[in-house]
């Protein structure tokens, strides 16, 4: 006895095949889509990464430039402060030197300076010995300062650009 043949089997088989084919196509489509999406994502990621790298490099270069300028500026400011200290030390040393020289010369120097002051203000000028050495002379309304410190400052001012040898190359 043979089993009865279901007349719907071919239909069922065809539906099954069609369903499998559709599933396969959907799967293929999904695989292709996933691959495309992945490719697009990777490309986008690489673009973003490259752009970020470029921006980062530009930012870094700008920051490095700013830092370099700041460092150069700070170094220059420090150098200027040190130059000012050296110049002040020179002034103090010159003042000490002039005081020592006037003290060494004693009365002769004071007398010479008094003559210079009288030549400027007239014979009636009142001459006063300065505590640090040298003299000051005064008439009503006019005064001459020939004290040690004033003489030293005048000499240093006349030294002018030669004082730059203090911080210039030897």
């Amino acid at each position: 006895m043979t089993a009865p043949v279901d007349e719907l089997d071919p239909v069922r088989a065809e539906l099954l095949r069609a369903a499998r084919a559709a599933a396969e196509a959907t799967l293929d489509h999904a695989r292709t889509g996933a691959a495309d999406t992945l490719l697009a994502a990777r490309t986008a990621a690489e673009t973003v990464l490259a752009q970020a790298r470029r921006l980062g490099e530009a930012d870094g270069a700008e920051e490095a430039d700013r830092e370099r300028v700041r460092a150069a500026q700070e170094a220059w400011e420090t150098e200027l402060v040190v130059r000012a200290e050296v110049y002040a030390a020179l002034r103090a040393e010159v003042r000490r030197g002039v005081r020592r020289a006037l003290a060494r010369e004693g009365v002769a120097a004071r007398s010479h300076l008094a003559d210079v002051a009288r030549a400027a203000l007239g014979p009636e000028a009142e001459i006063t010995a300065s505590a640090q050495g040298g003299v000051t002379a005064e008439t009503p309304g006019r005064r001459v300062d020939l004290s040690a410190d004033a003489l030293a400052d005048g000499a240093l001012d006349r030294l002018g650009v030669r004082a730059e040898t203090l911080w210039g190359p030897p």
Binding site: A120, L121, P140, L151, G154, R158
Partner: peptide, 12 residues
């Protein structure tokens, strides 16, 4: 000393 002597005026 060198240079001219600087006269200061005190009559303000």
């Amino acid at each position: 000393m060198s240079g001219p002597v600087e006269v200061e005026y005190t009559g303000v």
